[in-house]
Structure formats: C-alpha cells, structure tokens
Design a protein around this nucleic acid. Structure first.
Length: 431
DNA sequence: TGAAATGTTGGGGCG
DNA sequence: ACGCCCCAACATTTC
C-alpha cells in the first residue's frame, strides 16, 4: 500500500483538520511530519522563545496520540527545501497533504515544494482549514477584495452556512495512520533553544466566556477574553468549532473572528503591507527616531500607568490584553510619534500569539495607515482610558505596583503637547 | 474600537 | 418678574 504524507504547519491538531481528513480518507497509509523551519528559527532574537516551546510541546502531544494509534510523528529541523528531498527519498510518498498558509513566505515556500513534489509524481494537495472563507470567497461585486471591515463582515455573515462550520471527522479514519517505526522527537536543546518559562493558555473556553464576551472583553483586570489567540495561530484549536459556538452566543465574539479572516485576506491580497503603509501617504510621516523613548516604551517606564502595565504584562507573559494593545499602540505612534513598524517588530518578538496578518493589521489600524484604520486624529487619552477600562487600577497595580509613588517615573512626554505635535506632524505628511 | 473644542440649552442664583 | 451671568449637561464639529 502506498504512503501519503500529512505535513503539519499551523494546524497542530488531529481533530477537525481538513488536510489530515483528506489524507486519511484517501485510502493510503498516512505518515505525519513536521519541519522546524530554520529559515524562521534563525531569525528569532531569543533562544528562549515561547513560540518554539509551545510548538514543541504540542508536537510531543500529537506524537503521543499517534503512538497510541500505533503510528508516530516524524519531526525534522532545517530548511524545508533541503529537508523535502530527504523526506521523499525516505517515504516515497504518492501524495502530500497540507493546509493552506497565506503568508508571503509560506506561499513562496509551498510553491517550491509543490514544484519539487510534482517532479516526483507526488501531488501537493492543499486545503482551507485556517480560515472560514478562502482568500477569494469574500469579494466585492466587482471581484476586488474588501478593504473596509463592515461590508466585508456583512458579506461574510451572509455567506456563512452550517457546512462551513462542520467538523472534519478525522477520528473515523484513525486506523489509516502508518504503522511506522518511531522516530525520536528532536529536542529543544538540539535546535539551540531552551524551554520557556511562560505559561501557555488553556485550549478550553466556557460558553460563559463567549456569552459575557461583549460585557467583559474591554476590562484588562478581569478574565473576559478567551486567550485562544495562540491556539488559532498554531491551529491547536479548530477555528470552525469556536466560530460555531460564537455564532449562537455572541455577535461581538463572531466579529473578532471575522477581523481575523479580514486581516488574513488583506495580507494575502496586499502583501506590500509588510514593511509599508497600506496607504502610501502615511509613509511620509516624519517619525521621531528617539531611541530612549522607544526603550522606555518597551520596558514599561513611560510614566503612563496603563501603557506601562501593558508593556510589563507583555514582557512577563508574552500576552497583552487587547484593549491595552490599542492603548500602547496609540501611545507609541501618536504620543511618541515612533514608526508603527518599531512597535510591530517588538510585538512580533514578544507575543506568544503573534500572527503577521493580525499584528500588522492592528498596528496599521492604530497608526492610521491601514485598511479601515482609525483616523490619524483619533488619539487615545491615556488617562481617560484608565477611567473607562481600569477605574479601580487593579490591572495597573498588578503590573506596576509602584505606580503613583516616588519610585514611578515621570511622564516622558506631556499628554497635551504630544497630542498637538502629533496632529501637526501627521497633517504635514498627509497634506 | 476617541478626544477636545465649540456650540446650545436650561436651571438657578442674584440684583 | 425679569435680565443677566454662571455653569453643568448635552450636542455638534473638529482634529
């Protein structure tokens, strides 16, 4: 019997997995593999990267599940274009299954692998799994992509049927996994990484969280959000499953998942947003180059309690509450007038749930340069945001215990003056 | 998923 | 009773 390969990338689960389902259903032996891509790993700043630890932990869990089914996960480390010839040699696959990845690097990589597999008579089968709608499924009447969220979301909701959320019953075919020799899991140490001390969020979400999401999601002191972002990022939970739950229970919840699809299709259709403003005029903004200000922002010592609490939460946990992400992003781009790319890069380095599309979209939203962005004159007042969203100062005190005392730094910029400089600087660039 | 400036209205103190 | 002023509260516009 011939062998096909399921290539795990950002779909690290056995349940409700589109490509894995089709691989298992194909009637062949299915060998699961994962490649730690050194093209990505080599660019990471720290050897103590929580994302690498997260992936490694999830791979160990999948390997264990597969072992219980008499199979096993085979994990490689290297440049995929160099690893794949070895894989082809070893398994002689008659096909390869994978779920679509829409990032620019992944598209280029996958095209190379597809071409290689074609010459080896092993077709590369790819599937929609990471999103509810494929990149060309939600388009304007004239066939061009939406660049405004609200009409996109309307079309998205109108197009949604129960079929889109139907789970793929992979478990029906679990007897199809290749009964192969086991392969030792590559260790973090072998890859040059250490185990992160960061705690990973749970995969489970109660229906209560979704039901109360609208009422609670804006208050960083309470656990009002699901913390599922990292699981959506790496596919450790099914987006279909969580969308189905939200569809019944919470419009706001659903909207946040639609934002995710929205930004993924924006990155796909407008890859220039990596490194460039979506609206070119915004690249004329004369950003400050104040490294001291940037360092203070990164380290959470700007003298603004909510900003500093957010940055300290990020540094300590690899997570920041969404409301606070908006506050610190507005502060960096408007009060400090620092280039949004600086903030984007710092988040990319620190966030456990970092995803290029959402991170870039969020930063360009804050800077005003993006699709459907906040207008440049929308400047969050860092004091008012405390009054609205952390009135009891519980969140601030948790991360900045010295807030308000003599040990706490003075504001690095004065709010009113910074606001006016911001308005003048943006206006200069946009006129 | 903003905030500040400016405009409008109306109650109440007061001469 | 009336006009005037102050100012809170709300609405609109401006950035």
């Amino acid at each position: 019997m011939s062998t096909v390969i399921h290539w795990f990338r950002r779909d690290l689960r056995l349940a409700d997995n589109a490509a894995l389902y089709h691989a298992l259903k194909s009637g062949n032996n299915v060998q699961c593999i994962f490649i730690f891509d050194t093209e990505i790993l080599n660019k990471l700043e720290s050897k103590d990267d929580a994302r690498v630890s997260f992936i490694h932990k999830e791979l160990c869990a999948i390997d264990q599940e597969l072992k219980e089914l008499g199979s096993g996960l085979h994990v490689y480390c290297g440049n995929p274009t160099e690893i794949w010839p070895q894989i082809i040699q070893k398994y002689q696959p008659t096909g390869v299954y994978a779920n679509n990845d829409y990032e620019p690097y992944a598209i280029t990589r996958d095209q190379k692998i597809k071409d290689l597999l074609y010459t080896k008579n092993a077709p590369f089968h790819t599937f929609k799994d990471h999103v509810i709608f494929e990149m060309d499924e939600i388009l304007k009447g004239d066939g061009t992509p939406y660049v405004v969220y609200t009409p996109y979301s309307r079309k998205w909701k109108a197009a949604l049927t129960a079929d889109h959320l139907e789970p793929y019953p992979t478990e029906k075919y679990f007897n199809r996994f290749y009964k192969t020799e086991t392969m030792d899991m590559v260790s973090l140490e072998e890859m040059g990484f250490t185990k992160s001390e960061i705690n990973f969020p749970s995969k489970t979400t109660t229906l209560g969280t979704i039901k109360n999401y609208e009422a609670k999601r804006n208050f960083p002191a309470i656990e009002g959000t699901s913390r599922l972002s990292v699981h959506f990022r790496f596919g450790t939970v099914s987006i279909r499953n969580k969308t189905a739950k939200g569809k019944k229970t919470s419009e706001k919840w659903l909207n946040e998942l639609i934002w995710r699809d929205f930004y993924i299709q924006i990155l796909y259709h407008f890859p220039h947003v990596v490194g460039n403003s979506f609206r070119p005029k915004y690249d004329a903004v004369r950003w400050s180059k104040n490294e001291e200000h940037f360092k203070a922002w990164c380290e959470g010592r700007t003298g603004y309690g909510l900003v500093d609490a957010g940055m300290r939460e990020l540094n300590a946990t690899g997570f920041m509450h969404n409301r606070v992400r908006m506050v610190v992003a507005s502060f960096l781009t408007k009060h400090l007038l620092l280039d949004w790319r600086w903030g984007e890069a710092y988040f990319a380095q620190k966030l456990l749930d970092f995803e290029l599309a959402s991170n870039n979209g969020g930063w360009q939203w804050a800077a005003g340069s993006g699709v459907d962005a906040a207008p440049y004159f929308r400047i969050f007042n860092p004091y008012t945001q405390i009054e609205k969203f952390d009135k009891q100062h519980i969140y601030i005190k948790k991360w900045v215990p010295e807030w308000g005392s003599a040990d706490y730094p003075k504001e690095i910029v004065e709010h009113k003056a910074a606001r006016e400089i911001c308005l003048a600087t943006y206006k200069e660039a946009l006129n």
